[in-house]
Computed example of a mutant assay.
Amino acid sequence: MPTPHRSYDSYVALGDSFTEGMCDDLLPDGHYRGWADRVASALAAEHPDRDFRYANLAVRGKLIGQIHDEQLAPGAAAGAQLVTLAGGFNDVLRPGCDIDRVERLLGDCARELRATGATVVLFTSTDPTRRLAGGARLLPVILRMKAFVQELGTEDGIAVVDLFSAPCFDDRRLWAEDRLHLSPEGHRRVAEGVLEALGRPAAFDWRAPLPAAAPPGRAERLRADARWLRTHLGPWIGRRLTGRSSGDGRPPKRPELLPYR
C-alpha cells in the first residue's frame, strides 16, 4: 500500500548495483543516473527553495552482509526523512545462499532505519522465470524473499514497491545488454513505482507493457546470446570463482547527504 503523501527534505539510498543505477544514462561526472537519482530529482522539484538533500551509498556487487556492515550505520546516522533499501539479490544468485541470514540482515536493516523516524521503501525482485535462462532455479528463494519483504511492508512507515507483480519487467527492453541491470526505461519505471509508493500521483502507468515489437530473428538471438556469454556471463563467473566483486574498491557515488541540484 502507498504511504500517505508527505514532503521529504532528505533522502538516502542504500543497496547494490540496482540502486547505484547501473546501465542507466551516464551523468557528466561519469556515474550512472539510476532510478534513485530520478526519485531524488522529482522530490527536489517539490522544494523550490532547493532545500533538499540526497545521498546514494549503493555500490555494485554488494551482498546484504556488506550493505549491513558498510552502509547501514552511515545511512541511519544521516537522519534522512526517506530511505530506500534494496539488497539480497546478489546473494540469491549465488549457489548455497543462506536465505535465513539474508532475511535476518535485511529485516535488521529495515527496522534500524525505520527506528530513525525515516520512511523506508523496500522492493521485491522481478520475476526472472520468463526472461533469464535458468531463472526457474531462483524462483523458490525469490518467492520466499517476496513474502518476507511484503510482511515487512505491513509495519508502520515501511512501503514496498512490488516489481515481481509487474509483468512489464518480462520485456527485455527494460533490461540492459547484460540482462541483470535495468535499461534507462527500466530505471524510469522503478522511479515511478517508488514515487507512487510515496503517495505521489501517477505520471504514467509504470506497470503497463511496452508497445509490441517484432521479435528478433533466430540469427539475431544467437548473436546476442554469444555476445552475452562472452562479454557478461563469462566475466561474472570469473569473479565468482576468484572471490572478486565488480564493486571492490569502489566508493559510493554520493557518500554524503548534500544538497541535490
Rank of each mutant, 00 (worst) to 15 (best):
R179K: 14
P259S: 05
L132F: 09
A78H: 10
A80Y: 03
G107A: 05
D162Y: 03
L257K: 07
G234W: 13
G107K: 09
D25K: 12
W236C: 05
T119I: 07
S245R: 15
E185S: 10
R101C: 08
R261D: 15
G153H: 00
R200Q: 15
D37T: 04
L106A: 07
E103F: 05
G247F: 04
R53P: 05
L106N: 05
L222C: 06
A13M: 09
A110D: 13
D91A: 06
S7C: 03
A13G: 06
A214F: 02
L82W: 02
V12S: 08
L139I: 05
P2M: 04
I237A: 11
A77S: 10
E20Y: 14
A80F: 02
V12I: 13
E220P: 00
L63K: 12
A40V: 12
L57P: 01
L241S: 02
L152D: 02
V141H: 12
L222M: 14
P95R: 10
T116G: 05
W228S: 03
L72A: 07
D170A: 15
D100K: 11
A219R: 04
M1D: 14
A44Q: 10
N90D: 02
L122G: 02
D25H: 15
D49H: 08
R111S: 12
R200K: 11
D170C: 05
A159G: 12
A136G: 09
W35A: 02
T116W: 06
D16H: 08
A36G: 03
T3G: 11
L229H: 12
R6S: 06
V39M: 06
T19M: 01
F148C: 00
A118R: 07
V102N: 05
V59D: 00
L26M: 11
A40Q: 10
V161I: 01
R189W: 06
S7T: 13
L113Y: 04
V59G: 00
A44S: 15
G186A: 10
Q150E: 15
G65A: 13
A212C: 01
A77F: 04
T84Q: 06
S10I: 09
W35T: 00
G117S: 11
P201S: 13
D16N: 12
S7F: 05
Q81R: 14
R200N: 06
G61N: 04
S125M: 14
